[in-house]
Lab assay of single mutants.
Amino acid sequence: TLATPAVRRLAMENNIKLSEVVGSGKDGRILKEDILNYLEKQTG
């Protein structure tokens, strides 16, 4: 899974598996926005 260290840390802090997040960046890269959108969906 393609993600920057900052995105990986954000995911780890929120107990998110990067494999569950759909990346919207180039080549499927997971962006910070993708993590935040995933969190919004989870908290509903």
Rank of each mutant, 00 (worst) to 15 (best):
G23M: 01
Q42F: 04
I16A: 03
A3N: 04
L31C: 07
K32I: 13
K41A: 15
N14A: 06
M12L: 10
Y38S: 10
M12T: 08
V22L: 11
K32Q: 10
S19Q: 10
T1Q: 04
K17T: 10
D27C: 05
A3F: 04
D34H: 00
T43L: 08
V21F: 04
R9D: 07
A6K: 05
Y38D: 07
L10G: 02
T4W: 01
S19V: 08
E33S: 14
G44K: 15
R9Q: 14
G25M: 01
G25Y: 00
D27N: 08
I30H: 02
T4S: 14
G44P: 03
N37A: 15
T1F: 13
D27I: 00
S24M: 02
V22T: 15
V21K: 02
E40L: 09
G28Q: 06
G28E: 03
N14D: 10
K26G: 08
V22I: 12
L36C: 03
G44A: 14
Q42G: 15
L36E: 14
L39R: 14
Y38R: 13
R9K: 13
S24A: 03
T43V: 13
R29E: 15
L36F: 05
E20K: 08
L2H: 12
A6W: 03
A6G: 11
G25A: 04
L39D: 07
L10V: 07
E40F: 07
K41M: 11
K41L: 10
R29A: 14
G25I: 00
T1E: 06
S24I: 01
V22G: 10
R8Y: 06
S24C: 04
V7W: 00
S19M: 06
G23P: 11
V7T: 04
L31M: 09
V21C: 06
Q42Y: 15
K41C: 12
N15P: 00
R29G: 07
L31F: 05
S19Y: 06
I35S: 05
Y38M: 14
V22Y: 09
A3M: 09
P5E: 15
N14E: 00
G23Y: 00
L18N: 02
L18M: 07
R9L: 11
G28R: 03
S24P: 01
K32N: 07
E20Q: 11
D34L: 00
L39I: 15
L10P: 03
A3S: 08
T1V: 14
T1S: 06
Y38A: 14
D34M: 00
L18A: 03
E40K: 15
D27L: 05
S19K: 09
S19W: 05
D27V: 01
R8E: 13
S19D: 12
R29P: 01
E33K: 13
Y38Q: 13
D34Q: 00
I16D: 01
V21L: 10
G25T: 02
D27E: 10
T1P: 04
K17E: 09
N14W: 08
K41R: 15
N37T: 14
L39G: 11
G28P: 01
V7R: 01
V22C: 13
I30Q: 02
A3Y: 09
A6P: 08
P5W: 09
L10D: 00
L39M: 15
Q42T: 14
R8L: 08
L2F: 08
I35A: 05
K26Q: 11
N15L: 03
E40I: 07
S24W: 00
Y38T: 11
L18D: 03
V7K: 02
E20R: 08
E20P: 00
R9T: 06
K32W: 06
L36Q: 13
G44C: 11
L2Q: 04
T1G: 11
Y38P: 06
L36G: 09
V7L: 05
V7P: 02
I16G: 01
T43F: 07
V7I: 09
L39T: 09
L18P: 04
L31V: 10
L39V: 14
I30K: 01
I30M: 03
L36N: 12
R8I: 14
T4V: 01
E40A: 14
L18C: 04
S19T: 13
K41H: 12
P5Q: 14
T1Y: 13
E40W: 08
